[in-house]
């Protein structure tokens, strides 16, 4: 059809805004209170260990694209424990990174992965979980969902099932990983817990939201969320709540979001990141945002896997 529609209603055709995309988003670290308690030395040691891997990621990006766009980011936990202040902490982090020859382009607060500028980001992402169906799922029943949990397969039958079967002694039935290669590695991930009516999102769940943000796949009513705001230099606020969700420290940085992500983390994060992959495998990202990234990558002649977990990579360095 060549003739465009004469009559249009904007509420009938919502638009999804696109975000600028780098080739790679490289996470230089993830700071928790225990790291902070280790003082500046511990941070210096962390960045010194990350440096060679950061160089390797830059080199790899240069193999794929002639003029690679790599942006770096750093995440500070202000969600599970509140410690220090941006005014004190941010300059210290930046100074230690610089000593190791690293530039932090963007700095984010972990609590922004739960709620950013009044938008309940984590809750929206939870509503986008589509459980991987066990073989035999024909749509006739809703997926067997344990509220607040997500697994990578079928759970072992519980007590109720055993009672239903009228078995006096129920033989143990193993859980099963869907898509296992012969043997299962079954994982059940806690998404959140609640105490006194207050929900606390789990670390893997927020880390999954963080990955989606870095992949440029989060939208709220078509608008990008966790968009960086420019904050190039001190002074930084005295309260974490006064710091925007993501700040851009380097005015010359490549875009925050990217086709792919790399994260350099100590080995102790391996179980968390396994859980992140199980979650990302079962999240339906905004289809328009997915399409925008795919079209842009195709336009640049770059391969981009359809599967979200395939877009994220790690370096696990020794350490706790």
């Amino acid at each position: 059809m060549t003739d465009a529609a004469v009559y249009r209603e904007t509420t009938a055709q919502p638009r999804t805004q696109s975000v600028p995309l780098a080739h790679v988003s490289l996470e230089l670290g993830h700071l928790y209170m225990e790291d902070f308690e280790g003082g500046a030395d511990r941070l210096a040691e962390h960045f010194a260990r990350v440096r060679p891997w950061a160089d390797a990621v830059h080199a790899m990006a240069a193999v794929e694209a002639r003029r690679p766009r790599v942006s770096t980011c750093f995440l500070i936990d202000d969600y599970f424990t509140r410690f220090s202040t941006p005014a004190e902490l941010v300059p210290m982090v930046l100074a230690q990174a610089e000593k190791a020859g690293l530039t932090i382009d963007y700095l984010a607060r972990e609590s922004a992965c739960a709620v950013a500028d009044g938008t309940a980001v984590a809750e929206a992402v939870e509503s986008r979980l589509v459980d991987s169906p066990a073989p035999g799922s024909d749509g006739s029943r809703p997926p067997a969902r344990e509220t607040g949990w997500l697994a990578n397969g079928e759970r072992a039958p519980g007590l109720e099932t055993a009672l239903e079967a009228m078995a006096h002694v129920a033989p143990w039935q193993p859980p099963r990983e869907t898509g296992a290669r012969r043997h299962s590695v079954f994982l059940d991930v806690e998404l959140w817990d609640e105490k006194d009516g207050r929900r606390t999102w789990s670390c893997p769940f927020l880390a999954a939201v963080w990955q989606l943000a870095r992949l440029g796949l989060l939208r709220h009513l078509g608008e990008p969320v966790l968009s960086p705001r420019s904050w190039p230099e001190a002074p930084f606020p005295r309260d974490w709540d006064d710091l925007p969700p993501v700040i851009q420290l380097n005015p010359a940085a490549a875009p925050f979001a990217a086709y792919r992500t790399w994260s350099a983390l100590p080995t102790r994060f391996l179980p968390i990141e396994h859980a992140v992959r199980v979650l990302l495998d079962q999240i339906e990202a905004d289809p328009q945002a997915m399409r925008q990234a795919a079209d842009r990558a195709a336009g640049e002649g770059l391969p981009l896997p359809d599967e979200i977990p395939e877009r994220i990579s790690y370096v696990f360095y020794p350490g706790t």
């Binding site: 209603e9 509420t11 009938a12 991987s132 035999g136 799922s137 024909d138 749509g139």
Partner: peptide
């Protein structure tokens, strides 16, 4: 998605259900 003309008409977002069956 909401239209007012030629009559009132509203469409929800799509929700997905996973299946693996015949």
């Amino acid at each position: 998605r909401i239209s007012e003309r030629p009559n009132g008409y509203a469409v929800s977002p799509e929700v997905l259900t996973g299946v693996d069956c015949r």
